Simulated assay, not measured.
Amino acid sequence: MGMEREIKLALPVSQVNAATRWFVARTGNEGRPIELANIYFDTPALALASSKSALRLRHTPDGWLQTFKTVGNAKDGLHSRHEWEMPVAGEKLEIDALLRECDEPIASEALRQAAPELIELFRTNFTRTLWHIELDGSEVEAAIDQGNVIAEVNGEIRRAPISEVELELKSGDEAALNLLANELGKHVAGLAPDNISKAQRGYQLRTS
């Protein structure tokens, strides 16, 4: 089991270029853009959401990944949550493999019970531009995400925009995330802590 720790910041679209320029200046590289397509699953009764967890398939340039997360805690844009992630052969969940890895009994049981009824609920498609930053001995993966949440509800296609910065701790002290977020905020106007995950945005879109 891994513990994901990241700061998520809502990024005004008008400030995307400013944030990009700052990361390029900070790291000395242009950033690596990758296309990510994500499919989120739950039961029709939203059993996983009720158990405060989320399940997705992600298509990356290197292939497919499946990820199971707990909602965890979010405060002032800092998200901390359990995460289990692994490659899969294609566009298909491999639930048994996740259950073998999931060592949180409540989350594991929720997934086991939901498995027979899982359906696709919504998608998130976005471009992620990545930078690697070292700060005070810690390593942070910085990303600008730009795209959409997409859900089909009763034949209607609904969309909500994604525009955010994510600062994920890869190693070292969690304090590095706040230091980097504060540094970025001094140069990019309009950034705001965001406690809502992309999965939560998808659920909100379905019920809006």
Score class of each variant (00 low, 15 high):
residue 114 A to P: 11
residue 60 T to K: 06
residue 47 A to L: 14
residue 15 Q to Y: 01
residue 3 M to W: 10
residue 54 A to H: 01
residue 17 N to A: 15
residue 115 A to L: 05
residue 147 G to A: 07
residue 131 W to A: 04
residue 41 F to W: 10
residue 159 R to D: 00
residue 61 P to S: 01
residue 7 I to D: 06
residue 122 F to V: 13
residue 208 S to Y: 00
residue 161 P to D: 10
residue 63 G to W: 00
residue 101 E to H: 10
residue 195 N to L: 10
residue 137 G to W: 08
residue 191 L to A: 04
residue 141 E to Y: 03
residue 101 E to M: 14
residue 122 F to I: 13
residue 121 L to K: 14
residue 62 D to V: 03
residue 94 E to W: 04
residue 26 R to N: 01
residue 81 R to N: 10
residue 22 W to M: 07
residue 170 K to Y: 01
residue 71 V to H: 11
residue 194 D to R: 13
residue 1 M to E: 11
residue 67 T to I: 04
residue 146 Q to W: 04
residue 115 A to Y: 04
residue 37 A to W: 07
residue 182 N to V: 00
residue 199 A to E: 00
residue 115 A to W: 06
residue 64 W to E: 12
residue 164 E to V: 07
residue 200 Q to I: 12
residue 206 R to W: 08
residue 161 P to T: 04
residue 21 R to F: 06
residue 94 E to Q: 13
residue 101 E to L: 15
residue 136 D to T: 03
residue 98 L to W: 08
residue 124 T to A: 15
residue 60 T to H: 02
residue 56 R to K: 06
residue 198 K to I: 12
residue 121 L to E: 05
residue 142 A to S: 05
residue 172 G to V: 09
residue 95 I to N: 02
residue 144 I to P: 06
residue 51 S to A: 15
residue 194 D to K: 14
residue 111 L to M: 06
residue 208 S to K: 11
residue 96 D to E: 15
residue 47 A to D: 15
residue 95 I to V: 13
residue 55 L to S: 10
residue 28 G to T: 14
residue 77 G to V: 07
residue 45 A to C: 08
residue 113 Q to P: 03
residue 129 T to R: 15
residue 130 L to H: 08
residue 158 R to I: 11
residue 197 S to I: 08
residue 152 E to D: 15
residue 163 S to C: 14
residue 139 E to R: 11
residue 91 E to K: 13
residue 105 P to A: 07
residue 32 R to P: 02
residue 97 A to T: 05
residue 201 R to N: 04
residue 155 G to P: 12
residue 51 S to Q: 14
residue 13 V to R: 14
residue 145 D to W: 10
residue 117 E to P: 00
residue 185 G to Y: 08
residue 108 S to Y: 00
residue 65 L to D: 05
residue 10 A to P: 02
residue 17 N to K: 14
residue 164 E to H: 10
residue 162 I to L: 15
residue 163 S to P: 07
residue 32 R to F: 13
residue 163 S to Q: 11
residue 40 Y to D: 04
residue 29 N to K: 08
residue 154 N to V: 04
residue 206 R to K: 13
residue 27 T to L: 13
residue 179 L to P: 00
residue 166 E to P: 12
residue 153 V to P: 06
residue 12 P to E: 12
residue 190 G to P: 02
residue 185 G to C: 13
residue 31 G to K: 05
residue 108 S to L: 06
residue 196 I to S: 03
residue 182 N to I: 00
residue 99 L to Y: 01
residue 177 L to A: 02
residue 35 E to W: 07
residue 20 T to M: 07
residue 185 G to F: 01
residue 31 G to I: 09
residue 34 I to V: 15
residue 29 N to T: 12
residue 49 A to M: 04
residue 175 A to P: 00
